[in-house]
Protein backbone atom coordinates (compact mmCIF):
# COMPACT_ATOMS: atom_id res chain seq x y z
CA UNK A 1 0.00 0.00 0.00
CA UNK A 2 1.43 3.32 -1.06
CA UNK A 3 1.76 6.04 1.52
CA UNK A 4 0.17 9.40 0.83
CA UNK A 5 -0.75 12.57 2.68
CA UNK A 6 -3.48 10.86 4.71
CA UNK A 7 -1.01 8.47 6.34
CA UNK A 8 1.18 11.31 7.53
CA UNK A 9 -1.87 13.15 8.84
CA UNK A 10 -2.98 10.02 10.71
CA UNK A 11 0.49 9.54 12.22
CA UNK A 12 0.49 13.16 13.31
CA UNK A 13 -3.00 12.91 14.82
CA UNK A 14 -2.06 9.79 16.82
CA UNK A 15 1.17 11.39 18.04
CA UNK A 16 -0.70 14.56 19.06
CA UNK A 17 -3.27 12.59 21.02
CA UNK A 18 -0.61 10.54 22.82
CA UNK A 19 1.06 13.82 23.78
CA UNK A 20 -2.27 15.23 24.91
CA UNK A 21 -2.92 12.17 27.10
CA UNK A 22 0.53 12.57 28.66
CA UNK A 23 0.05 16.28 29.29
CA UNK A 24 -3.29 15.61 30.97
CA UNK A 25 -2.24 12.69 33.16
CA UNK A 26 1.43 13.13 34.10
CA UNK A 27 2.06 14.33 37.63
CA UNK A 28 5.72 15.10 37.07
CA UNK A 29 6.18 18.59 35.58
CA UNK A 30 9.07 17.39 33.41
CA UNK A 31 6.80 14.63 32.08
CA UNK A 32 4.23 17.26 31.13
CA UNK A 33 6.91 19.24 29.26
CA UNK A 34 8.00 16.07 27.41
CA UNK A 35 4.40 15.39 26.36
CA UNK A 36 4.15 18.95 25.06
CA UNK A 37 7.27 18.34 22.94
CA UNK A 38 5.50 15.32 21.42
CA UNK A 39 2.57 17.55 20.47
CA UNK A 40 4.94 20.10 18.86
CA UNK A 41 6.44 17.30 16.79
CA UNK A 42 3.03 16.14 15.60
CA UNK A 43 2.27 19.68 14.43
CA UNK A 44 5.59 19.84 12.58
CA UNK A 45 4.86 16.58 10.74
CA UNK A 46 1.57 18.10 9.59
CA UNK A 47 3.22 21.32 8.37
CA UNK A 48 5.88 19.47 6.40
CA UNK A 49 3.47 16.89 4.96
CA UNK A 50 1.21 19.66 3.66
CA UNK A 51 4.25 21.50 2.31
CA UNK A 52 5.30 18.41 0.34
CA UNK A 53 1.96 17.18 -0.92
CA UNK A 54 0.09 20.39 -1.67
CA UNK A 55 2.61 22.85 -3.05
CA UNK A 56 6.08 21.29 -3.21
CA UNK A 57 7.61 24.24 -5.04
CA UNK A 58 6.80 26.76 -2.28
CA UNK A 59 8.19 25.37 0.97
CA UNK A 60 6.30 27.72 3.28
CA UNK A 61 5.31 24.82 5.53
CA UNK A 62 8.95 24.04 6.22
CA UNK A 63 9.61 27.67 7.17
CA UNK A 64 6.72 27.45 9.62
CA UNK A 65 8.21 24.28 11.06
CA UNK A 66 11.47 26.15 11.63
CA UNK A 67 9.56 28.75 13.65
CA UNK A 68 7.73 26.05 15.63
CA UNK A 69 11.03 24.36 16.51
CA UNK A 70 12.50 27.68 17.66
CA UNK A 71 9.53 28.53 19.85
CA UNK A 72 9.53 24.98 21.27
CA UNK A 73 13.18 25.34 22.24
CA UNK A 74 12.47 28.67 23.96
CA UNK A 75 9.48 27.14 25.74
CA UNK A 76 11.52 24.16 26.96
CA UNK A 77 14.25 26.45 28.31
CA UNK A 78 11.96 28.72 30.30
CA UNK A 79 9.71 25.83 31.36
CA UNK A 80 12.58 23.79 32.75
CA UNK A 81 13.98 26.87 34.52
CA UNK A 82 10.59 27.34 36.21
CA UNK A 83 10.45 23.62 37.13
CA UNK A 84 13.90 23.79 38.70
CA UNK A 85 12.93 26.94 40.61
CA UNK A 86 9.79 25.25 41.96
CA UNK A 87 11.90 22.25 42.94
CA UNK A 88 14.38 24.48 44.74
CA UNK A 89 11.71 26.40 46.64
CA UNK A 90 9.16 23.68 47.45
CA UNK A 91 11.22 20.45 47.08
CA UNK A 92 8.39 19.32 44.82
CA UNK A 93 7.92 18.69 41.10
CA UNK A 94 4.49 17.08 41.08
CA UNK A 95 2.13 19.58 39.50
CA UNK A 96 -0.86 18.53 41.59
CA UNK A 97 0.99 19.31 44.83
CA UNK A 98 2.15 22.77 43.75
CA UNK A 99 -1.13 24.52 44.53
CA UNK A 100 0.02 27.71 46.20
CA UNK A 101 -2.02 29.92 43.85
CA UNK A 102 -5.12 27.73 43.97
CA UNK A 103 -7.96 28.57 46.33
Amino acid sequence: MQVGLIHFLALSAVLFCIGMYGALTRRNAIGVLMSIELMFNAVNINFIAFAKFINPAAITGQVFAVFVITVAAAEATVGLAIVLLIYRNFREIFVDRVNLMKW
Binding site: E37, I69, T77
Partner: peptide, 20 residues
Protein backbone atom coordinates in the same frame (compact mmCIF):
# COMPACT_ATOMS: atom_id res chain seq x y z
CA UNK B 1 17.89 21.16 18.43
CA UNK B 2 15.49 18.55 19.79
CA UNK B 3 17.78 15.57 20.36
CA UNK B 4 20.91 17.59 21.06
CA UNK B 5 19.27 20.43 22.96
CA UNK B 6 15.78 19.93 24.31
CA UNK B 7 16.05 16.22 25.19
CA UNK B 8 19.41 16.67 26.87
CA UNK B 9 17.97 19.60 28.83
CA UNK B 10 15.10 17.34 29.93
CA UNK B 11 17.55 14.65 31.06
CA UNK B 12 19.51 17.28 33.01
CA UNK B 13 16.33 18.40 34.75
CA UNK B 14 15.39 14.79 35.53
CA UNK B 15 18.79 14.19 37.08
CA UNK B 16 18.68 17.43 39.11
CA UNK B 17 15.33 16.40 40.56
CA UNK B 18 16.23 12.72 40.90
CA UNK B 19 14.96 12.49 44.47
CA UNK B 20 11.44 12.46 43.04
Amino acid sequence: IYVGGVAILMIFAVMLTSRM
